[in-house]
Design a protein around this nucleic acid. Structure first.
Ligand SMILES: [Mn+2]
Ligand SMILES: [Mn+2]
Ligand SMILES: [Zn+2]
Ligand SMILES: [Zn+2]
Lengths: 152, 152
DNA sequence: GATCTAATGCTACAATGTTGCATTAGATCC
DNA sequence: GGATCTAATGCAACATTGTAGCATTAGATC
């Protein structure tokens, strides 16, 4: 029997965001944004490359850099520079919702603290015009603290 | 007539700090610490190398890295990672007086805001144990704002 | 001044990110 | 569906920032 005609295939949320921003909806962009969207913590370049390869979509290093930069430009992802001087990425723009980050010195993970907004809580010296503020806590995360027992 | 015997030569403040920390008082360490002490803003590796060369004391890149690391270890300098992923250094320890920094996006300078202390002003989610907090403002510094006229 | 070794200089290497250009594939038009 | 146009990708070479190993130099002590 003949297959019924498929309706116009629904785009994933990631693909829709990419299409809405005016760029081409490519496998790479969709896959990278989905990796970011499915992660609770921020991911560095290697994390993302490994995840793509695991999904059968290995990519050139440079393409990944350019794709991530593009996602940040479009406001579909944001970036934090970790203490290891490497960039970490997470889905979602930052300008719309600036927030602090927590770097765990045991497991190395960087988490977004959406509830903590660093802006407009400090008075700077006269003449200094801040446009944004970066706030990063360093210490032990909840997971690592629990794993160590009651006393961290 | 015979020259009067010179008293034991006075060490510079920088040399005294270095001697007090137990390490050898070398030309390199003294010169680097003095460069840092004489600067109001934090300096990156190239800034320091250029300053040393201008003073007739050119140095190997690696030695500079090691010297700066050593000064930080001894608590005689502190370090901030700039948005260009390069470290910037300033005289004085940070643990004793944690403070925020201001990065000017026009001139690229990074200044210490000794009066703004990022710690103990935020409540983190349960289980998260911060040991230190980094707070960096990004915007236009007073100098660059003035240079642009009343309206930045 | 002679001695001991921390500090330095040199070379090679690692990690992260960038540039230029040829090739591929996403979009558009038919 | 296929032809066309060019944004996106892949590839190679390079740039920047920082590290590791080891021979040489110079700060401290005698
Ligand atoms: Mn975040
Ligand atoms: Mn500072
Ligand atoms: Zn952790
Ligand atoms: Zn400025």
């Amino acid at each position: 029997m003949p297959l019924p005609a498929m309706p116009t295939p629904l785009l994933t949320p990631a693909a829709n965001l990419i299409a809405a921003s005016g760029g081409r909806v490519t496998r790479t962009r969709t896959a990278v944004l989905e990796v970011l969207q499915h992660s609770a913590r921020s991911l560095n370049h290697d994390d993302i490359a490994a995840e793509l390869a695991a999904n059968g979509l290995p990519h050139d290093r440079v393409t990944l850099y350019r794709t991530l930069d593009w996602l940040v430009e479009q406001g579909l992802a944001h970036r934090v520079i970790g203490p290891d001087r490497a960039r970490r990425f997470k889905a979602g723009g930052e300008i719309s919702s600036p927030h602090a980050h927590f770097h765990c010195e045991r497991c190395g993970h960087v988490l977004c603290l959406e509830s903590i907004r660093p802006d407009e809580r400090f008075t700077l010296p006269a003449g200094y015009e801040p446009e944004r503020a970066e706030l990063v806590f360093h210490g032990t995360c909840a997971d690592c603290g629990r794993r160590r027992g009651a006393k961290a």
